[in-house]
């Protein structure tokens, strides 16, 4: 039994858990970003979409999965990073540079990762647990999330803070997406450069897609 569990505590096993949990979240943020793009178009569509989402019983399963995978991701990420720091107690006077330097975002995963954790708490407090406005469409009462979104993003400080966090998301994913494939054992000289390119595209689209609605709100609704 102990031997069977040893995979989950091994260096590679734990990295593979990071990769799987990271990919689950990568999928989630993509759908979340896409849904947010409804904000500039129609308050009604946006509210109806979120109402449909939270009244579907499967939401508990999805939320449970997200919380679980995030906790595994964070706990593993922190533990791995502490071990990695311990593997070099004495720092170099000079780091790798020039043609031997890796892409910077790959060595900063714990920093933008931690930023994401802080952002997530802030984000949930602002929206999920924010003011519960109500509205009625076609006789159905539901939460007017759109109103809260407009109210929040009419404040420039909010939009700036939010945009900075989304840059963090983009950086985290620009390494994370490609890295997960390598961690899960997939590498091919022809396809891996494409995966890396796709990772950059994906992370740019996610970050930019998240920033567009708040910017739109700020520019059109601020008074």
């Amino acid at each position: 039994m102990q031997k069977s569990l040893s995979y989950l505590s091994s260096a590679i096993g734990r990295k593979q858990l990071m990769a799987i949990t990271g990919l689950v979240w990568s999928g989630f943020v993509l759908t979340h970003m896409a849904a947010n793009l409804l904000i500039p178009f129609s308050a009604e569509l946006y509210n109806k979409y979120s109402h449909a989402l939270i009244t579907n019983p499967a939401i508990y399963l999805a939320e449970g999965l997200l919380v679980l995978t995030l906790l595994v991701h964070i706990a593993n990420g922190v533990k791995l990073t502490l071990e990695n720091r311990g593997a070099r107690p004495q720092k170099y006077a000079m780091g790798t540079n020039g043609s031997k330097a890796p892409r910077f975002q790959s060595t900063w995963m714990i920093f933008h990762g931690s930023l994401l954790a802080v952002f997530l708490i802030w984000h949930l407090l602002t929206f999920k647990f924010g003011t519960d406005y109500q509205i009625v469409y076609d006789g159905v009462q539901m939460r007017d999330l759109h109103r809260l979104v407009i109210e929040i993003f009419a404040q420039p400080a909010y939009v700036i803070g939010y945009a900075l966090c989304m840059v963090g998301v983009g950086l985290h994913l620009s390494h994370g997406f490609y890295s997960s494939f390598a961690t899960l054992g997939f590498y091919h000289p022809r396809y891996s450069p494409m995966i890396q390119g796709l990772g950059y595209l994906y992370s740019f689209v996610v970050a930019a897609g998240f920033i567009i609605p708040p910017l739109y709100v700020l520019m059109t609704k601020a008074n």
């Binding site: 990295k15 330097a101 390598a182 961690t183 899960l184």
Partner: peptide
């Protein structure tokens, strides 16, 4: 542990490919 930064291959005097790491990850699994 590995963070897939690829710094190893860049520093390697024999330019051993990073591909080895990904393949070993599969091998280990």
């Amino acid at each position: 542990n590995c963070s897939n930064t690829g710094a190893c291959s860049l520093a390697c005097p024999k330019e051993i490919s990073f591909e080895n790491i990904a393949r070993m990850n599969a091998e280990y699994m």
